[in-house]
Design a protein around this nucleic acid. Structure first.
Length: 270
DNA sequence: ATGGTGGTCCTACCA
């Protein structure tokens, strides 16, 4: 019997919030933590502090100022890939294989473009980029490597809240980027074509409101609770029966100098 | 209510 926990967190600057990352790792000890929006060039990534705490396997894909993803692991990582979706040179994807309990699992860590304010690809290039990015994600199949005995997990800030219960008001957000039909249908197609299982919604009933992000701009985020579920954990079908628990660490939004996203955990027992 | 806040890195740009 092997326990395995993967976590995903849009950290919004890994250097500014390194103390929060270290606290999270000490308190929850996930086997793997996937970060997005590290906003950190590779040469400045604070790897030694993480290694000191037992996370000796770190793979990063960063750039100056924007984007940036990282996989921080207690377990060895192999066959690392960094794919340039939409060929813009953005650091929005990193992938690696991790071995746990006799299983090989390919982890994909994504930071999908936010898409700007105007949900019209004809006038807003950022929204067109987001839709193009989703199109390229459709080529990703959860079962693609099963023939080699490799399972798959896909995590990250996908910047889309697909279900009505993934936003504080379905009606009021239908024309707001992150919850427009073209985006939610696009994400559903990525999920269906790839045969991905939404592990968070496997564990938390779809009727229940569930958020992972609250805007910095809204005052009193906790009381107003105008959140969205933008951060996701998916897997290939073979892993879904091994899912034991999901944690959305809502309290992290109330930490000092918080990220606007909170960590999400999936806990497996193989 | 077309603002609001917060990050990077110095001037806007991005979320």
């Amino acid at each position: 019997m092997t326990e395995f926990t993967v976590a995903t967190w849009n950290i919004n600057s890994v250097r500014l919030r390194l103390p929060l990352v270290l606290d999270l790792l000490e308190a929850y000890r996930p086997d793997v933590l996937c970060l997005q929006e590290t906003k950190c060039p590779n040469g400045s990534f604070p790897g030694s502090e993480l290694r000191k705490r037992g996370y000796g396997h770190i793979e990063i894909h960063g750039q100056k100022g924007y984007h940036g993803v990282a996989i921080i692991s207690k377990l060895p990582l192999s066959d690392v890939q960094r794919k340039d979706f939409c060929e813009k040179g953005d650091t929005r994807h990193i992938s690696a294989v991790v071995n746990s309990g006799g299983r090989s699992i390919r982890l994909h860590n994504f930071y999908v473009p936010a898409g700007g304010d105007e949900p019209d690809p004809a006038v807003n290039p950022k929204f067109a980029h987001k839709l193009g990015f989703l199109d390229e994600m459709k080529a990703l199949h959860a079962e693609a490597e099963r023939k080699d005995g490799v399972s798959s997990i896909l995590v990250g800030d996908l910047n889309i809240a697909p279900l009505e219960t993934d936003v504080w008001s379905h009606k009021q957000l239908l024309r707001v980027v992150s919850h427009t039909p073209v985006e939610t249908e696009g994400l559903n197609e990525v999920q269906e074509r790839g045969a991905w299982v939404d592990l968070v919604r496997q564990h938390v009933p779809p009727e229940e409101k569930l958020f992972t992000w609250w805007s910095y701009r809204a005052r009193d985020w906790d009381l107003a609770d105008k959140g969205r579920r933008l951060d996701h954990i998916w897997s290939s079908a073979d892993l879904s029966p091994a899912l034991r628990d999901v944690t959305v660490l809502r309290e992290a939004r109330g930490w000092e100098r918080p990220s606007d996203h909170v960590p999400v955990f999936a806990h497996f027992r193989f």
